[in-house]
């Protein structure tokens, strides 16, 4: 009888964890992130990477746009590095 109760309690506890987990981590979290699955290949013709050429890609990533720009990160789920709340999504705004 005791074992049955313990089993039942463990199931209930797991249920609670799953319920809270579903709040903190919506189903979208589990969707496969296709962008992160793609390996980016540098196909630029100007492969003089030794030169100091940081961030010459304003056109690529909208850094030169005027006015207020709401941006979505390229991939919406932060890494599980212990710094972020599970399932949280960054919000970014550039003015």
């Amino acid at each position: 009888m005791t074992y049955r109760n313990l089993l039942l309690a463990a199931c209930a506890g797991t249920g609670i964890l799953v319920a809270f987990g579903s709040v903190a981590m919506p189903f979208g979290t589990f969707e496969r992130n296709t962008k992160s699955a793609i390996t980016l290949i540098d196909d630029d013709d100007d492969d003089n990477d030794d030169q100091r050429e940081a961030s010459n890609d304003c056109g690529d990533d909208d850094c030169g746009a005027n006015g207020s720009v709401m941006q979505q990160p390229q991939s919406a789920t932060p890494p599980a590095n212990g710094l972020f709340a599970p399932g949280s999504k960054p919000a970014v705004q550039m003015n």
């Binding site: 992160s36 990533d61 030169g64 932060p78 960054p90 705004q93 550039m94």
Partner: peptide, 19 residues
């Protein structure tokens, strides 16, 4: 992964809100 966005232009302001 998941925390990458655009570069930031001169004179502009970037606000990032994170949990």
């Amino acid at each position: 992964n998941g925390i990458t966005g655009a570069s930031v232009g001169a004179g502009r302001s970037l606000s990032i809100t994170l949990d």
